[in-house]
């Protein structure tokens, strides 16, 4: 494994996330079958695959909102038995994941309230988090007053407020325009490496997966299972132009693309 371990979590032995022969049946249909994989602490793992191959289901298994029919999902060695504040999730539909009746600050504060952070500390922490995601001065706005990219930043700030050890992202930039998406890709890569959290990033965009990931897991559908794992050996911090023009990037892109074509 070539995952660059962040110092804060490098001491933690064993994988951050482990799937062990996981099968999941929902409504009599097998969604995921025989899935085994491990993700190291501090690793940025991306998951790609055709729609309906169980990418989102994979994230739900990690959060504990779903339990496997067979096999086991473990976080830091312990079997998952339900949602934990150690695990934060960024949803694609930021418009539905934010509380419309709370301002940007209020939405971020929700995570702190849930963790019983003292009232006095919250204001300062919220302001710091909004600064971090580039929303300085927008704290008093309601989600309806913010652009899509800004709303997604609020959601990311709320997830960071949890101080998560694992950050799950479900096609977080899928609904954003290309420029906003690139800006947020770079920011999320920076935030993840700063926080030392383990990232599991689901996307249908192969370029995005290679650009962000230390490793890319390619799933295939019916039922969802692991088809291929690709190590991404590209220097960090990555650059929207240079990384994407790097021969290795192009080679990986070919490998992944051929693979997806084959399994489709």
């Amino acid at each position: 494994m070539n995952a660059p371990l962040a110092p804060a979590v490098a001491a933690c032995a064993g994988p951050a996330i482990a799937f062990d022969g996981v099968r999941l049946d929902l409504g009599g249909k097998c969604i995921i079958d025989g899935l085994s994989l491990t993700i190291a602490p501090g690793e940025f793992a991306c998951v790609v695959g055709p729609s309906g191959c169980g990418k989102t289901t994979l994230l739900r298994l990690v959060t504990g909102l779903l339990s496997p029919t067979l096999g086991q999902v473990r976080r830091f060695g312990a079997p998952v038995d339900g949602p934990s504040r150690d695990v934060a999730i960024v949803f694609q539909d930021y418009g539905r994941a934010l509380l419309p009746w709370r301002t940007a600050s209020g939405n971020v504060a929700l995570a702190l309230e849930a963790m019983n952070t003292p009232r006095g500390e919250r204001v300062e922490r919220v302001a710091g988090l909004l600064d971090k995601v580039g929303l300085t001065g927008h704290g008093d706005k309601y989600p309806a007053q913010l652009s899509g990219g800004m709303q997604q930043r609020v959601q990311i700030a709320r997830c960071l407020a949890q101080g998560p050890r694992v950050l799950l992202m479900d096609e977080p930039f899928g609904a954003l325009d290309a420029l906003t998406r690139q800006a947020l890709q770079d920011e999320i890569a920076k935030l993840i490496s700063e926080s030392g959290a383990t990232a599991l990033f689901v996307t249908h965009d192969l370029d995005e997966a290679i650009y962000l990931g230390d490793r890319v897991f390619a799933l295939q559908g019916n039922p969802g299972r692991l088809a291929e794992v690709i190590d991404v050996d590209l220097q960090r911090p990555r650059d929207q132009l240079r990384t994407r023009e790097h021969p290795e990037f192009l080679r990986l892109r070919h490998v992944l693309f051929d693979h997806v074509q084959k399994t489709h």
Binding site: L65, S84, V87, I89, F91, D93, A97, A111, A114, Q162
Partner: peptide
Amino acid sequence: RLREVARNLGIGPFS
């Protein structure tokens, strides 16, 4: 989606 957000944050029924 908001219910899911609440569950992930461990927000109790009264809150």
